[in-house]
Design a binder for these strands. Structure first.
Length: 837
DNA sequence: CCCACCAACTTTTTT
DNA sequence: AGTTGGTGGG
């Protein structure tokens, strides 16, 4: 830890930097150099301290100066080190002020990490630097410039759930479902259009109006757009697209940012979509002499930046990416952005980083072999100097639960051998796969944390509480108002809601004003009173955060508590007899704690800042490195992370590659990249597992080994139980890797089967009859079971064993048991299927 | 307007 | 399997 007397080291680097700051730290043209055009000559000599430890390619990437630089960074090649040193070098050498740097990362977590590392390199001098995600950066710009495009700075950000809710209303109102419109499909289509920067009018012009389907879609799109505008809201895709439109429509506004950001760095460039690409293009555009004149007339310091003809040259652009890790095509990511970078930015310098500092050679060889099957790629081979390491371990379970048990057992072995839980991760393709894993992990008393999935902020009770806050911050947000109108129940049903809406429509007032005027609607006294009470509550809360309030502005937790008390939301949950409501009340309490934490990290943070932060949290942001738990996540969430040991589960056909990807062009290749990303997260140990049968929709379906398994040289995998060996249950299907599968000729597949058999596998350790799907459906409560070391017990799956120790308290009491047949296990006493003998 | 019961659908990945 | 949405009686 560096400690400088002048550095406010208490800076909340762990929180997302979203405060609407001024242009502090920006010293305009008195700044060092002009950015891109600055020559090397007037720069102090290279700082050996900064670049120590970099290999020649890394160093070149960190030190190169020019208008455009593409760093092709293979997995684990130290690109974050390069980026942070590049930024630190620019500042250290006084080529740029911190405020002239814009660094875009994929997640907030990556942004925070980068900020911390830059600060560590510079001893804290990173104030004014923008290091954030595309979405966070755009929100900052849009809030600043909201009035220019007819919004207010307190606009709401609609997440995909909000978008779906809104579309559902519209589709229902238009009876569009009879034409085959689904919420998901429509949302997807609109999202695609926005990512392609096709706005409503453009799309309407090109639409085929003789197709009733097209006409209906246009109508939905139109109503959706209008609803967003009226609600003073943007959806996720708008954040990027609207910023681009803003820059294109208002060159003077664009010039402010073009002038400010002289060095733009973009991480994970292979996953940018067209809108993000366009945004980068706008930001790196030179400023025309006439606009520069205007900036100067406004008192902006620009004269030292201008070139011979009076223009301000475009910012310098650095992008980092690896087309082999492009896994977001489904979201509009366009691999061409990185493949055609040299064409888009003529004169661009390209640096390749191929040395891997993360994984063992065995892991890298497997990764290289897999990705080599994607044909239209630049060949690139990762290598490492650390040696072969352990073999990859493979396992084929009889069921998803058996597979999960294998994972749990191996994790315990690793832990016993000294590996921290937090250095272990379990990956899967779909969130649904967490169920079996969680059931087994809970039973095994294995500490774990699920990243993403059903997120905290997606829970109904949290969305309810948030809707109260949103209604206060943005009274135009009808979606939020509708949500809280009858939550908790206060007798305001759909009929009343419709009356309020049409009253607002008829009188040309907002829904919120209609609520204030509920007395003139001629509703029953009880309903009228309920509406007015809610309306007053919101008004009082709004007064509490009004900057003009002489009593001062209340903090976010105070406003939230006020709303929770006034609405009775929390009280209703507490008094409910539904046992799940207890947990919901705890979640709401947790939200209050979150707001407290927010205020601690952002003393000047406003309610809008808080809402922004919440809207933009990603699955990967939740990862807390200090927690001593195993991390469970999807392969997508895993991107950019690394772990000592990685378990890649469900390596089966229809799961990886996923069934849904089969029809999509480039689907199988993208799924292969996903597999590649998963493999390359592992530093020391890699485990690949699959199951013979997998439960889905309550039915148990037969699963086949993934085609990608064949692509790994057989001698790299040590199969504890190979797909070829673990057949027999039911006997109708061959488990072997050459089992009939579309798209694979029978000719070459026997070889694979043989190699798996030759690869050696031990006999199944346990009698299979004990296994199939016995885990679910057993509700037990052993809270009263008293166990002491020495007791003998019987477990429904593991047989008999002796208790060696008991740890933990209350509901979390854990028995350490030495079983006769399966060895040592840890069991959560409360729910383990055990009996004392 | 509220609640209880039954039918249908879910699961691809996410800022 | 579990949740969500629709329907019908109170």
């Amino acid at each position: 830890m560096t400690s400088l007397p002048d550095a406010p080291s208490s800076s909340p680097s762990s929180s997302v930097p979203i405060i609407l700051d001024g242009w502090e730290g920006d010293r305009g043209d008195r700044g060092p150099g002009g950015g891109a055009g600055a020559g090397r000559g007037d720069r102090p000599g290279p700082d050996e301290r900064l670049f120590a430890g970099l290999n020649p390619q890394q160093r070149e990437a960190a030190e190169y100066r020019g208008p455009a630089l593409l760093i092709v960074a293979g997995a684990g090649s130290g690109k974050t080190s390069v980026l942070t040193r590049r930024i630190a070098g620019l500042i250290e050498s006084r080529e740029a002020w911190p405020s002239q740097i814009l660094a875009i990362t994929f997640t907030n977590k990556a942004a925070n990490e980068m900020r911390e590392r830059v600060e560590a390199l510079l001893g804290g001098r990173a104030q004014g630097m923008w290091i954030s995600t595309f979405h966070s950066s755009c929100v900052r710009i849009l809030r600043r410039e909201a009035e220019t495009i007819g919004k207010t700075a307190s606009f709401t950000i609609y997440d995909s759930g909000d978008t779906r809710a809104l579309l559902k209303r519209i589709i229902k109102e238009l009876d569009a479902d009879t034409l085959g419109f689904t919420v998901a499909g429509t949302a997807n289509r609109i999202s695609k259009l926005k990512n392609e920067l096709t706005d409503l009018e453009t799309h309407a012009r090109n639409a085929n109006l003789s197709d009733p389907n097209e006409v209906m879609f246009l109508e939905i799109f139109r109503q959706y757009t209008r609803a967003l505008r009226r609600a003073n809201a943007f959806d996720f895709d708008d954040l990027i697209a609207e910023t681009v439109y803003l820059f294109r429509a208002f060159p003077k506004v664009a010039a402010l940012y073009q002038r400010r950001f002289r060095h733009i760095l973009v991480d994970e460039y292979q996953d940018t979509n067209h809108a993000q690409y366009a945004l980068i293009r706008e930001l790196t555009m030179p400023i025309a002499p006439a606009i520069a004149d205007e900036l100067e007339a406004q008192g902006q310091h620009v004269e030292r930046m201008r070139d011979a003809v009076g223009a301000i040259p475009g910012a310098s652009l650095t992008v980092v990416g690896d087309s082999d890790q492009s896994i977001y095509a489904f979201r509009g990511a366009d691999i061409r952005n990185i493949v055609e970078f040299e064409r888009d930015f003529p004169g661009a310098k390209v640096v390749l980083l191929e040395q891997n500092y993360r994984s063992t050679q065995n892991i890298l060889s497997a990764a290289n072999a897999v990705i080599a099957n994607n044909f239209d790629r630049k060949d690139k081979r990762l290598w490492t100097a650390v040696g072969d390491g352990d073999k990859i371990v493979g396992y084929t379970g009889y069921s998803g639960h058996d597979e999960a048990q294998f994972v749990a057992d191996e994790i315990e072995k690793l832990h016993a051998a000294g590996m921290d839980y937090k250095d272990i991760a379990v990956f899967y393709r779909t969130n649904a796969q967490t169920r079996a894993l969680e059931e087994i992990f809970i039973r095994s008393a294995l500490p774990y944390k699920v990243m993403g999935g059903t997120k905290f902020y997606e829970r109904a009770e949290i969305k309810d509480a948030m809707a109260y806050l949103i209604s206060v911050a943005n009274p135009d947000d009808i979606l939020a108002l509708r949500r809280i109108l009858n939550t908790p129940k206060r007798g305001i049903g759909p009929a009343t809601e419709t009356q309020l809406a049409s009253y607002a429509e008829d009188n040309g007032i907002s829904f919120r004003d209609a609520m204030r005027d509920a007395g003139s609607l001629g509703l029953g006294p009880k309903v009228t009173g309920a509406i007015l009470q809610l309306s007053n509550l919101l008004d009082e809360a709004a007064a509490k955060i009004d900057p003009a309030n002489p009593a001062g502005v209340s903090s976010v937790p105070d406003v939230l508590t006020f709303l929770l008390d006034g609405s009775g939301l929390l009280e209703v949950l507490r008094n409910s007899r539904d046992p799940q409501d207890e947990a919901r009340a705890e979640n709401v309490d947790e939200l209050v704690a979150v707001t407290r934490e927010f205020v601690r990290n952002n003393p000047d943070g406003t309610l809008v800042d808080f809402l922004t932060e919440v809207s933009l949290v990603a699955a990967a942001d939740e990862i807390d490195d200090s927690s001593g738990a195993v991390s469970l996540m999807t392969l997508h969430t895993a991107k950019g992370l690394e772990y000592d040991a990685v378990f890649l589960t469900g390596v089966e056909e229809d799961l990886l590659p996923h069934r849904m990807s089969a029809n999509e062009p480039g689907g199988p290749a993208e799924e292969r990249r996903l597999f590649y990303v998963g493999i390359t997260r592992a530093k020391k140990r890699l485990f690949l597992s699959l199951a013979m049968t997998r439960a889905q929709f309550g039915e148990t379906a037969v699963a086949m080994p993934s085609r990608y398994l064949q692509e790994i040289p057989a001698d790299l995998i040590d199969w504890r139980q190979s797909p070829g060996a673990a057949n027999g249950r039911g006997g109708t299907q061959s488990r072997a890797l050459n089992a009939r599968r579309p798209g694979l000729g029978a000719g070459d597949s026997g070889r694979w089967n043989d190699s798996f058999r030759a690869g050696g596998f031990s006999k199944p350790e346990r009698p299979k009859a004990e296994w199939p799907n016995r885990v679910t459906g057993q509700v037990r409560d052993n809270s009263d079971l008293e166990l002491v070391p020495g007791d003998r017990i019987r477990h429904t799956d593991f047989g008999e064993g002796r208790v060696t120790a008991v740890t933990g308290e209350g509901a979390k009491r854990v028995a350490h048991v030495q079983f006769e047949t399966v060895g040592a296990k840890k069991l959560l006493i409360k729910i383990a299927p055990i009996d004392k003998l």
